[in-house]
Write a protein that binds this DNA or RNA. Structure first.
Lengths: 346, 346
DNA sequence: GGTTAGCACTCACTAAGAAAGAGTGCTAAC
DNA sequence: GTTAGCACTCTTTCTTAGTGAGTGCTAACC
């Protein structure tokens, strides 16, 4: 059977109606609202064809039609019009994502927040995977009498701190010296590799007092490196679930949130996805538990290299067009903002 | 009417049964499970008295009894036995809260997580209010070619970073100098006061190049100070709401989460509370929307001065005894861990 | 041959009624 | 003061019937 012009128009009408109403769409609704120029009966015939072709389903005999994953796929690939963000929308995003005063992890967190606010879905972001991450320098500074703070800077600009409680006295000079020694030893090495070396052996200085300090500092150094390497996962808009009709059922809402709560698993799902803006709809998702969700992710880059992901998860019925536009705009913006050789002039 | 021995025993039985079952408790249940030595009829009479005294209510004529806020108050003040944490429980908490390698804000965040896991309720913490917070030093370090990172250390050990994108070239020496100048200018001053001064005027150096750098740095400096002063609010265990029978009703679950989502308001509620371990039950809470919740908060201190709060929110039916023990143990531990003159030897 | 009106049919949803079960409240006897 | 007995209340669950939205089929129409 052929997917002719009229069938496409009807399908499109059904999809956009359903996306907004969340109610199965009947033939009369279409003929009334979308001015097809044919009677409901004709539309019914077409709908019946579309159903046979796998684009529509029936919750039950006497209900209207609901788009299938296949229909959304067609819609996303061919039918939907590209949504252009208004200038105000763009400006709001830029303002709230003011990257001049943010480290990128804060910016990502903020992006997640904005995204859930705009889309009314659950949004998430995963920080860049940093297997290639290399150490830039370490800096140890005094905090209190018996506490120091260690800053670890990675080449990408990824930054992490640790407070370390020392059991030995220190002076600022010694800290500075120790920082230099550690930096000298490990600069330019992959964090991953540093973690794998037998650090206690590889690290040796002839200065006794420094070694004593290092004894306290090294464990924190390692665990902080681990922290940096751990993929950080951000979520926002979890309570939006209450305004999504698909999750009016307590059981489904719980299921959704518990899926999102198994952060390790969810991070794996994200890490496995290809780069670029990817939409997976319903059973296109590899995981059983996501068979009636859609997932949209896009990749952002820090300095053109490290890549993280930003996206939303929700019911298959979602406003794909607007949402992808927002996500794309945000990732574009982040890419620019965290480009190392950003030489634009303002 | 007098609250005699037997009435108290019955009340206690009802409360502990209801705390675990979440079902209205009938006279037969009490006589069967708690071996009162009297018949259900007698217990019914006593229950009727207790109801008249305001300790019990009736969802409807033919249901069992449910403790009122007044009953929980009595229970919390007089009836409940102090719950002693097991050594394993204590050890688990200590292990997970390993403060040797954490700044206090991470520790607080972690504490919130542990608390919700143990209690199966929604837990929260508010970072110390820092009106008295004073600047210790500022340190600006290179990050990338055109980006630097500014570290602001407060006297309490509160630490904050900002990445700053410069539009002018810099050298490490200049950054170090600028750090020193800023530190020199503002060291020991209240963050609050620094924010209020006309910073551009008050801050002047005769070195032209430095001024140019400062131009880019100062806005970030200020906004980071603001960040530190903003009370940070942590939540965890939000999805626990699905396993609490009181929130089986979608509407109530949403209400609960939306209350907790209005972070500003919720922070205000917390800030208004007295210090120490405070339990407010049902309509003892000032806010209408919290009239069927109980709130338990405890105060922790950083360096004996700055005080934040840690606690849980849930239905009035909660395991007060265990929960307060856990919270108290955690705050005690935090107090010790972040005591400035901690001289214990291990 | 495509289009349409007409109509029987399906199925979710709602309301109303009936039956069951848990628990109270009262009374009268112990 | 305590208890057994029993009527009564109210929720919960299960039926049953009615309603309405929407389909699917057929026969007529252009």
């Amino acid at each position: 059977m052929e997917l002719n012009e009229r069938k496409l128009r009807i399908l499109q009408a059904i999809i956009s109606d359903f996306i907004h109403s969340a109610e199965p769409v009947g033939s009369r609704t279409i003929s009334r609202k979308y001015d097809m120029g044919v009677s409901p009966a004709t539309i019914r015939n077409e709908m019946s064809d579309l159903e046979q072709m796998g684009f529509l389903t029936h919750p039950h005999t006497s209900a209207g039609r609901v788009p299938s994953a296949k229909a959304y796929r067609l819609y996303v690939d061919d039918l939907m019009e590209r949504h252009e963000l208004t200038d105000e929308a763009k400006q709001t995003i830029r303002q709230q994502l003011d990257t001049n005063i943010m480290e990128f992890d804060k910016a990502i967190e903020q992006a997640t927040r904005i995204l859930s606010e705009i889309t009314n879905l659950i949004s998430f972001a995963i920080a860049p995977t940093s297997e290639e991450e290399r150490l830039k320098y370490v800096n140890i500074l005094p905090a209190n009498e018996d506490t120091v703070v260690m800053m670890i800077m990675a080449e990408s600009g990824n930054l992490s701190n640790a407070m370390i409680k020392l059991r030995v006295p220190y002076t600022e000079e010694k800290l500075a010296l120790l920082s230099k020694v550690i930096t000298y030893n490990f600069r330019g090495k992959k964090l991953d590799d540093i973690l794998r070396t037998d650090i206690i052996r590889s690290f040796e200085t002839d200065i006794e007092a420094l070694n004593r300090l290092a004894e306290f500092v090294m464990p924190s150094f390692l665990s902080t490196l681990e922290d940096i390497l751990n993929v950080e996962l951000y979520f926002d808009g979890l309570t939006n679930i209450f305004s999504i009709p698909e999750y009016n059922d307590m059981e489904r809402a719980r299921e959704m949130l518990s899926m999102v709560n198994r952060k390790k698993d969810f991070a794996d799902i994200l890490l496995q996805r290809d780069s670029g803006t990817i939409i997976t709809i319903g059973d296109e998702n590899d995981f059983e538990s996501m068979h009636d969700c859609s997932l949209i992710t896009a990749t952002y880059r820090i300095n053109g290299k490290l890549a993280g992901k930003l996206g939303v998860i929700g019911p298959t019925r979602m406003r794909y067009s607007e949402i992808t536009s927002v996500i794309d705009y945000m990732t574009d913006y982040l890419n620019q903002a965290f480009q190392i050789s950003d030489t634009e002039d303002t």
